[in-house]
Nucleic acid binder design. Structure first.
Length: 241
DNA sequence: AACCGCCGCAACCGCATTTTT
DNA sequence: GAAAAATGCGGTTGCGGCGGT
């Protein structure tokens, strides 16, 4: 289906929002909710498209937005979730109250990725703490904690509607990458088949969280340990780490 | 003080998915 | 069931602020 951008109508404003526009949007949402984003701008007297209003509300004006820098715990959680979910920022946001998908995405690209790269370089340039003879995947302290999941290869991710996705696996349910590549499988298909119900995912995530063993609060050690724990990330797409 | 380059963030764009007609 | 409309999501970009020279 071909459809033009929703904001291409003449007269619709783009760019940064003014305080007046913010106030109009806030007032309207508080009074009427946001059941219909398409109709909202007109009703609220805004010269914006619905998409722009929705984005502004979700990423900036929502009352439950948490401001300020991400804590180490939050960053650790993001790394962890990225390992579990890939680039599914909105799914990560659902696990981080007060944080938006856009914010998490920005933090990943501007802070966390760089830190991981730094510590990967540090690790590659000198002997590290893990015994060379011991494969990472068999190390009990490795990031996987023995959970039955894997990351689909970058190539597979591209096939899956550009969504990097790490389905939860059972031993009977290993996906062969070549099969994924050879057939047209939608994200929904994969989700229905492999992703546990929300409640299960929550439980699963919390169980894994309990097993986390990063204890050092020293910045350098923190990132070094995180990197070691996130060994699997080296298999992610080049631009994701 | 002025210039320049880098960085971080807000916002846009295009596509996928879901819902409605 | 098909088409259209609406919504949601992730990738990307542009601009403002800040630090270095």
């Amino acid at each position: 289906m071909v459809r033009g951008p929703c904001c291409d109508k003449m007269g619709l404003k783009k760019g940064p929002w003014t305080p007046e526009e913010d106030q109009l949007l806030i007032s309207h949402v508080q009074q009427n909710g946001h059941a219909n984003w398409r109709a909202l701008p007109k009703q609220a007297g805004l010269l914006r498209c619905g998409k722009s209003c929705r984005l502004r509300w979700i990423n900036y004006l929502r009352p439950d937005i948490k401001r300020g820098n991400f804590s180490k715990e939050e960053e650790q959680t993001i790394i962890h979730l990225h390992e579990l979910l890939g680039n599914r920022w909105s799914a990560m946001a659902a696990k981080l109250p007060g944080r938006t998908d856009n914010e998490i995405k920005n933090v990943w690209h501007t802070h966390i990725k760089k830190k991981l790269i730094t510590y990967q370089s540090a690790r590659d340039s000198k002997p590290h703490k893990i015994k060379d003879s011991e494969p990472q995947s068999k190390n009990p302290d490795s990031f996987n904690h023995g959970f039955k999941y894997m990351s689909i290869s970058p190539q597979c991710s591209t096939e899956l509607s550009s969504v990097t996705y790490s389905p939860v696996m059972t031993t009977q349910d290993i996906v062969e990458p070549e099969k994924l590549n050879s057939s047209k499988i939608t994200f929904s298909d994969i989700r229905k088949r492999y992703l546990p119900a929300d409640q299960d995912l929550k439980t699963w995530f919390e169980m894994d969280k309990e097993l986390k063993c990063v204890e050092s609060d020293d910045g350098k050690d923190f990132w070094y340990n995180l990197f070691l724990k996130a060994q699997g990330l080296k298999d992610l797409p080049g631009d994701a780490i």
